[in-house]
């Protein structure tokens, strides 16, 4: 589904990613872990088209198409979704209106009919229930005055509504208490199918107790230094990142 080949990325002249290789196949869950400043969020941003990041070398291929020149909305139309680490507050745009616009603009781009109001409402109701979201919540201005947990839950609600091929969850666990984390993880697990994939970006292992990855990659200083199964996450939790650093330097 997604292939990243030798990806080098600059931000304001500094090289942040220094040759990333990654392949995610349908049905898989990948986790990227790493210390702060290792380039995890940069990877999420550059795959979803943040224009502040400059790809200097390498390729990002989504379903056999090179996408690194595409606008963020075009990538969304191809089925890439980013759950933001820091969702933006937009007063005056309700959650409902935002989601409806996002879905219908995506369908327009895919030359599909608009979703009927009835269908939209039904889907919203189902997904709100899935994530334990009150209907009233949908009338509120997007992220305005939301708690950290509400913001993250709202991101996963949007994920459920947009039903993307590839979901990238950037630090979705940060700011969530354990109950909220369980609800969010349950939601993500229920959305899992053979034809979609998930990329989790996280600093801590905790999230991976609830969403079990097929692969764990460790990103350090702009490179993937180790890849393993879910047991790698436990080892990192136990031993921290320093042993990997030492291995690198050795």
């Amino acid at each position: 589904m997604l292939k990243i080949k030798n990806l080098h990325v600059n931000v304001e002249g500094h090289e942040i990613l220094k040759g990333i290789n990654l392949e995610i196949k349908p049905g898989e869950i990948h986790a990227i872990m790493g210390p702060n400043g290792s380039g995890k969020s940069t990877l999420a941003s550059v795959v979803t088209g943040n224009e502040d990041y400059e790809v200097t070398e390498g390729e990002i291929i989504m379903e056999n198409e090179e996408i690194s020149e595409l606008a963020p909305e075009e990538r969304a139309h191809k089925g890439i979704f980013l759950s933001f680490q820091y969702p933006i507050e937009i007063p005056g745009v309700s959650v409902m209106n935002f989601v409806r616009t996002a879905i219908n603009e995506t369908r327009k781009a895919r030359k599909q009919e608009k979703m009927s109001g009835k269908e939209m409402l039904k889907l919203m109701r189902e997904n709100a229930a899935l994530l334990g979201i009150d209907q009233k919540f949908l009338q509120r201005s997007l992220n305005e005055g939301f708690s950290g947990g509400e913001k993250k839950r709202n991101e996963i609600f949007q994920l459920a509504m947009m039903d993307p091929k590839l979901a990238i969850l950037d630090e979705t666990d940060s700011g969530l208490d354990i109950d909220a984390l369980r609800v969010v993880a349950d939601g993500v697990n229920k959305l899992r199918r053979d034809d979609n994939a998930t990329l989790l970006i996280t600093h801590y292992q905790r999230l991976l107790d609830y969403i079990v990855p097929d692969y764990v990659h460790v990103l350090m200083d702009g490179k993937i230094v180790k890849t393993g199964g879910k047991e790698l996450a436990l080892k990192l939790e136990d031993k921290g990142y320093d042993w990997l650093k030492e291995m690198q330097n050795a």
Binding site: A71, V93, A109
Partner: peptide, 28 residues
């Protein structure tokens, strides 16, 4: 707000429509 525009675009709302939504929100 450029960050807000980016957020909307990452959800599949094209630039022009994202601008319009922001304008509308501004005067809502």
């Amino acid at each position: 707000d450029k960050d807000a525009l980016r957020y909307l675009r990452t959800r599949g709302i094209p630039q022009k429509e994202a601008y319009a939504l922001m304008m509308y929100a501004f005067c809502s």
